[in-house]
Design a protein around this nucleic acid. Structure first.
Lengths: 209, 209
DNA sequence: GTCTATATGAAGATAGAC
DNA sequence: GTCTATCTTCATATAGAC
């Protein structure tokens, strides 16, 4: 049973508090209180609150870029796709504080804007690659214009589903269910799938409700 | 040329500043500065900053509820639908500060939560009514489960499109184009439309790009 | 590494004169 | 209705002892 370093405890507790109360509503004092350490101690480890946010963003970015490294020309199955969505929604949920006040957080940490946009671009490119793969395998029938708007829609939903879902239970922001989000994503691609694949998705997507 | 009352000027300028800088970043001092009045004067008209937000919410709510009073059993044409979407996106854009930091704004003004959720519900119900109308007119073919997820998706998109769009130009938050949002919405219903209506939407939706 | 005590500064809000 | 001056509160951040 090794003792977790204070620095890491600060990061963990901050993330948790940011997610459940919203980053702007979490003061350095609240964080140190929650950890039973002094504010001075917190500032020994991080020179300012923004640095905590930055470091959490680093982890978020690393996790997502890793996940989004979709192989360009592999044959992806629908099951693999569902699994990918599941991982994606879990990752987003783990750092949902970013998304819940996205414009505010990004405008107060302007160095993060470029990086966040890059992640968004990668997300969209990832969805494109996946749809192209489905198309190559004759599992999906879709023309160019609609492919673009579909991927835009997938990106938007991946971004905002968790916030949208949170709106129905703002009092208890800790409970997050990525399932319904995956369900919505699958239903976005559904109409463009071939008959057989449509049946498959109709069945598997129910598991996520 | 009648002089606009200070009270109304405060509301107008606040809305504008909230939209372009984000509500939490706009101080009462900034508002009064922008108006060339003293902070004390502002507090003569509104007893606190929250009251300004509340009153802006009142207008927002009134506008939206008015717009969303969709007749239950009328035959709606696709043109009317597009027009409705246009008005909806314009209204949302006019009060986009609410949506850009939705979770934050709602958690700091808890009396607004219930009202906001009611608007969301009405939005979804409105989309339901519209789709039912399309279905009755044999313009749309869709089963129950997909109708639900489609309307959920329409509601989500109506909510977050403007924020999502803002992400691509956070530096200039004043330029807003509702067109692309309408385009996305039309493309969401597209796959469920009958052949002839699909052609129609493919053509008209381009106007919105 | 951790604490206590304190400085700094900004935002929200009030009092009282004009 | 509007102004100036001021107060309060609170979050961020630092200094220096242990």
């Amino acid at each position: 049973m090794k003792k977790i370093k204070t620095r890491d405890r600060i990061l963990g507790t901050s993330l948790q508090l940011f997610n459940s109360l919203g980053e702007p509503n979490v003061t350095t004092l609240l964080i140190s209180d929650e950890l039973d350490i002094s504010p001075g101690n917190l500032y020994y480890h991080f020179k300012c609150k923004g640095d905590i946010v930055d470091e959490l963003f680093d982890s978020f970015e690393a996790e997502l870029l890793d996940l989004l490294a979709v192989p360009e020309d592999a044959d992806i199955s629908l099951d693999e796709f569902s699994f990918f969505l599941h991982l994606l929604f879990e990752a987003v949920a783990r750092y949902r504080f970013m998304y819940q006040d996205l414009v505010n957080v990004l405008s107060r940490h302007s160095q993060l804007q470029v990086r966040f946009r890059r992640i968004l671009k990668k997300k969209k490119a990832g969805f494109m690659a996946l749809c192209e793969s489905f198309r190559r395998q004759d599992m999906m029938i879709i023309d160019e214009a609609e492919l673009l708007s579909l991927c835009e829609q997938l990106t938007l939903t991946a971004c905002y589903w968790s916030s949208f879902d949170t709106l129905s239970h703002l009092d208890d922001r800790d409970s997050v269910d990525p399932g319904k989000g995956v369900y919505q994503m699958l239903h976005l691609i559904l109409p463009y799938l071939a008959d057989q694949e449509q049946q498959e998705i109709r069945l598997t997507s129910r598991r996520y409700l």
